[in-house]
Amino acid sequence: MTGSTFSHDELVEAFARFERTVDDAARTRDWDPWVDQYTDDVLYIEHAAGTMRGREQVRPWIWQTMETFPGSYMTSFPSRWSVIDAPTGRIICELDNPMRDPGDGTIISATNISIITYAGDGKWKQQEDVYNPLRFVKATIKWCRKAEELGNLPDVAAEWMAKFGGTSGGTR
């Protein structure tokens, strides 16, 4: 891989913009600005969903993922830590995926590692998300059981539980 032409400071600012954009998207539930920060020909590698090429492949996936339970109950995607690799123009970070409060203040989440590669002009040319999908399933089941225990399990979550996490209605 050829070296990056971006300075450490430029990458710091670009990643800060990335985080603000993702935070705004999670808050407003408008996923287009998130997608628009990628280049037209972005390579997005998502180990559970596959590889997408181009913003117009990424856009429907992000909307579907974030507007369908359990993604629709994730409230933010803050980075827990990040590493800037200026020679390659990459940021490697651990992103948290906390879910809504099930009713008692409990925070239930799962994390993933993301590797994003900067293209310049505020755009990212590649993102790779690395994680164990079973951790997300386990966190979602935990959230559903807690919400059910508190009498706050929404129908969409009960349907998800019946399909992926075992039956609801008190069965553990």
Rank of each mutant, 00 (worst) to 15 (best):
I62L: 11
I62E: 00
Q64G: 13
T65H: 15
T65M: 15
T65L: 15
T65C: 08
M66W: 06
M66H: 15
M66S: 13
E67V: 09
E67T: 13
T68E: 03
F69H: 00
F69N: 01
F69K: 00
P70D: 07
P70F: 04
G71A: 11
G71Y: 10
G71K: 06
S72P: 11
Y73I: 14
Y73T: 10
Y73L: 11
M74A: 07
S76K: 02
S76T: 11
S76E: 10
S76N: 09
F77Y: 13
F77L: 15
F77M: 14
F77K: 10
P78D: 13
P78F: 11
P78K: 11
S79G: 02
S79E: 10
R80P: 04
W81F: 09
W81E: 05
S82G: 00
S82L: 02
I84A: 03
I84N: 02
D85T: 10
P87A: 09
P87G: 01
P87H: 11
T88G: 03
G89T: 11
R90W: 01
I91L: 10
I92M: 14
I92Y: 10
I92S: 09
C93G: 05
C93V: 12
C93Y: 05
E94M: 14
E94Q: 14
E94I: 13
D96I: 10
D96N: 13
